Amino acid sequence: MPAKSGAQQKAAGAALAAKRGDMPKSKLRGASKQMVESMSEKELDKMASTKRKGKPEHAAKH
């Protein structure tokens, strides 16, 4: 699933780094903390690698 906003992509990137062991999980906050527990490495990689062009920084709430 591709990221819907720049903020979501950044959170996925941080969660992916923690899942791979590149940064400690204790450094995660907010959405990235939830993502690391609920998503697989493959899902996080797909979300973090989304192109940012044309994406808003924050997604609109419905």
Rank of each mutant, 00 (worst) to 15 (best):
M1N: 12
P2D: 05
A3E: 05
A3H: 04
A3C: 03
A3R: 04
A3W: 01
S5T: 03
S5V: 02
G6T: 09
G6V: 12
A7E: 13
A7N: 11
A7L: 08
A7Q: 11
Q8N: 09
Q9D: 00
A11K: 04
A11N: 11
A11D: 14
A12S: 12
A14Y: 03
A14L: 12
A15H: 02
A15Q: 02
L16S: 12
A17Q: 15
A17P: 01
A18K: 12
A18R: 09
K19N: 07
R20H: 10
M23P: 02
M23S: 12
M23Q: 13
P24K: 10
K25D: 08
S26P: 06
S26Q: 13
S26G: 05
S26F: 02
S26W: 04
S26D: 14
K27Y: 10
A31T: 12
A31E: 15
S32L: 07
S32I: 06
K33N: 08
Q34Y: 10
Q34N: 13
Q34P: 00
Q34D: 13
M35E: 09
V36Q: 02
S38I: 00
M39K: 15
S40Q: 09
S40L: 08
E41M: 10
E41F: 01
K42P: 00
K42E: 15
K42M: 05
E43P: 10
E43L: 07
E43S: 14
D45F: 04
D45I: 01
K46M: 04
M47E: 11
M47C: 05
A48K: 10
A48W: 07
T50N: 05
T50Q: 09
T50D: 08
K51A: 13
K51W: 00
R52L: 09
K53G: 13
K53M: 05
G54T: 01
G54F: 00
G54S: 06
G54E: 09
K55G: 03
P56M: 11
P56Q: 12
P56C: 07
P56S: 13
P56H: 10
P56I: 09
E57K: 14
A59C: 05
A60F: 03
A60N: 09
A60Y: 05
K61A: 13
K61Y: 03
K61V: 12
K61H: 09
